[in-house]
Simulated scan of single mutants.
Amino acid sequence: MKKLIFYIVLLMTFAVKADPSAIPSSGVIKRFEDFHSEFISSRTIDVWLPEDYSYDQKYDVLYMHDGNMLFDSSDTWNNQEWKVDEAAAKLMKEGKVRPFIVVGIWNAGKKRYPEYFPEKVYRELSLLDRTIIKTRLAFQSKSFAPIGDFFYGDNYVRFLANEVVPFIEKNFNVHSGPAHRFVGGSSMGGLMSWYALLERPDVFGGAIAMSTHWPGMYDVDNPFPKGFEDYIRKNINKLDGHKVYFDLGDQTLDAVYPPLQKRIDAIFAASYPNDLWKTEFFPGHKHDEVSWASRIHLPLMFMFGNEEQE
Rank of each mutant, 00 (worst) to 15 (best):
D250S: 09
L300F: 11
V290Q: 13
F100R: 09
N68H: 15
V256P: 10
A18D: 14
R136W: 14
F139G: 15
V103C: 10
Q57Y: 00
V203A: 00
L128D: 09
S74H: 09
V290L: 14
D219P: 00
R136E: 14
I147F: 00
V47W: 08
L49M: 10
Y122S: 06
I168M: 01
F100G: 03
V61H: 05
Q261F: 11
V183S: 01
F151V: 04
K110N: 01
Y122L: 01
Q309A: 13
F172N: 06
I29E: 02
A270R: 15
S294F: 06
Y272H: 12
K83P: 04
S42T: 08
R112F: 05
A209R: 00
F144L: 00
E199I: 03
N107M: 08
N68M: 07
F246C: 04
F32D: 02
I101R: 01
P259L: 00
I40N: 11
T135P: 01
K58D: 03
E38P: 01
K170A: 15
G177S: 06
H213V: 01
G206R: 06
F204A: 00
P258N: 06
D149H: 01
L298V: 15
M12T: 08
L276Y: 11
I29N: 05
D72W: 08
Y55L: 14
E280L: 05
M217T: 14
V97Y: 10
H213C: 04
S294M: 09
F151K: 04
A145N: 02
F204V: 10
D230F: 04
G205D: 05
M92P: 06
G104F: 12
E38Y: 11
G185Y: 00
D219A: 13
L239S: 06
R123V: 02
I236E: 12
N306E: 15
R158E: 08
S41K: 15
M12E: 12
E308K: 13
D202Y: 06
N237R: 15
K226D: 15
W106F: 09
T44V: 12
E94V: 05
R31W: 01
R158K: 11
D221P: 12
H297G: 14
H36Y: 11
K234F: 11
W214P: 06
L300Y: 05
D34A: 10
L62K: 09
